[in-house]
């Protein structure tokens, strides 16, 4: 999971979007719970963003605009839903939640999308300054803690983001949130393909009251965070 002394040296690579999957997951998990590292990452990421802006603009070939517009508006996208419309009105973090949900719909189709999701986490983490976020490791029944991460954000609305990085089996995992008082609530399904998947869910209770999150695959395989 890493601490400041192991994560600090890789923050520049994380900011540049050039950290491999395993190291990236560890670093993000630490940054989610460490305000000092989150602030350092934000400062480095500002410079990394600036570097891309240095590329010289160039006019694309004639007809580019009409081709790209046809492709964009013909691209599959989740139909507008009540939650997304609400999210647009409800502020930045809620928007990030809807985006993560939209991302989950396509993450299995395009290999580069997991980096974009990581970038979105990074931006959300920076926004939250690490102060209202909890990150819990998802552990397999065999005790391997690198199956993924559950991010819990305290806000309006509060939300949960499940990011599965390395699940033992694929399938639609039923997601259940258990609260400190013992009540549990169904949080829908997380589709896992090639071991990875992402889902987001709005929480109705304060983040501090979340005691555990459990995901169960159709064959009974479980992932657990607490």
């Amino acid at each position: 999971m890493g601490d400041c002394t192991t994560v600090r040296p890789v923050l520049p690579e994380l900011a540049l979007g050039a950290l491999g999957g395993d190291e990236r997951a560890d670093a993000l998990r630490h940054v989610a719970s460490c305000g000092a590292c989150a602030r350092e990452l934000e400062r480095l990421a500002d410079v990394a963003d600036g570097l891309l802006a240095l590329a010289a603009p160039a006019e694309p070939p004639a007809g580019f605009e009409s081709v790209v517009l046809a492709r964009m508006t013909g691209a599959p996208r989740r139909p507008p839903r009540r939650r997304r419309v609400l999210a647009l009105a409800a502020g930045a973090v809620a928007v990030a939640l809807a985006g993560a949900t939209a991302g989950a719909a396509v993450v299995h189709r395009a290999g580069g999308d997991d980096r974009l999701l990581a970038d979105q986490y990074r931006r959300v983490l920076a926004t939250a300054d690490g102060q209202h976020l909890r990150a819990l490791a998802l552990t397999t029944a065999a005790g391997d803690p690198s199956a993924g991460t559950v991010f819990l954000y305290q806000g309006r609305p509060s939300w949960m983001l499940v990011a599965i990085a390395d699940a033992p089996v694929d399938g639609a995992y039923r997601t259940v949130v258990t609260y400190a008082g013992g009540a549990s609530r169904d949080a829908g399904f997380c589709q896992v393909t090639d071991g990875t998947g992402t889902t987001a869910y709005p929480l109705r209770a304060p983040v501090a009251e979340v005691a555990a999150v459990t995901l169960t695959a159709p064959d009974g395989t479980t992932l657990h965070a607490s």
């Binding site: 964009m72 508006t73 691209a75 996208r77 997304r84 999210a87 647009l88 930045a92 973090v93 928007v95 990030a96 809807a98 985006g99 993560a100 939209a102 991302g103 396509v106 974009l116 979105q120 931006r123 959300v124 926004t127």
Partner: peptide, 9 residues
């Protein structure tokens, strides 16, 4: 276009 709802202003 796909990710526009995820942009954090």
């Amino acid at each position: 276009w796909r990710y526009a709802p995820g942009y954090d202003p």
